[in-house]
Every structure is written in C-alpha cells, then in structure tokens.
Amino acid sequence: MATLKINGETKDFDAPDDMPLLWVLRDVLGMTGTKYGCGIAQCGACTVHLDGQPVRSCLLPVGEVRDRAITTIEGVGATAAGAKVQKAWLDLEVIQCGYCQSGQIMSAAALLAATPNPDDADIDAAMAGNICRCGTYVRIRAAIKRAASEA
C-alpha cells in the first residue's frame, strides 16, 4: 500500500511502481477526469500537475511521484489559475466533445501560473502538446488571453 497526495488529500492505493499515474488515478482511485488519449505523451489528454508543473500522467510511473503534490482536473479549480481558466473556458464556450479539455485546462492553468500574461508564442509553447480533435484551438487561445486579463 502506498500513498499519493492528490488535490490536497492523501490517498492510499495499491499498484506496482511502474504503473503510470494515469491508470492509478482512473482505474484504481476512480478519478476519471484525467483522460487516456494516446499513452505516448503525444496528445496531452492525461495532463496533471506535479508540484505545479504539467506532466503527462500516461507515461509517469507512479513510483516516481513519491510525495510530490498531484493536482488533477478535479482539483485544479481550487487554484487561482485553474479557476480563472475554467471560468474563461465557460465564458467563451471553448469546449466541444470535451474529451481533451481536462488536459487543455491543466496545461493552460500551469501556463498562467508561470506566465500570467502569455503572448501567442507562450501559448504555442505551452499548449502545442495538447491535441484537440474537435478543433477548439481558436477558442483555447482566446480563452487563455481572457483568463489572463481577469487577473
């Protein structure tokens, strides 16, 4: 039995060290907001924060996490940047099917926390690892700017 610090709570779980965090979250802990899209760090659907940094949980062995703080889409609303991003996402109606959006929001929240006033190149650098098959990119860009302007 091991523990993880997720969204400020301590969670016990039982899983091998090499199991990616994604599957611990989804299949062991039932936290299904974090999505599986590719399993090879190419789509960003599985993005979570590790001590505030965005990481792709589909390739992150849970054994590497140790006592670092994990934030998932279920908890990112409790952070200032996360809340702003979620609000902007709704204000501009970014989302279509929504499957990629947990990851998009996590990446955007990490971007805003590190770069409060991102320009287009900052957005590209932080968001290009997140694929949206529904093509919501135009609104993602606008919503990040909107969130940034609501400091």
Partner: peptide, 21 residues
C-alpha cells in the same frame, strides 16, 4: 446561449463511456 454540457467538462465530472466504473 450557454451550453448544457460544458460545465461538467471543465472540472472532470463529465462521464464518457470510457469513464464508467
């Protein structure tokens, strides 16, 4: 008008087929 389905898609609560437990 605002969409019905999007709020639950911003906070991880929306359940897709793949999320059923």
């Amino acid at each position: 008008l605002k969409r019905f389905d999007t709020p639950a898609k911003t906070d991880g609560k929306a359940i897709y087929g793949i999320d059923v437990m």
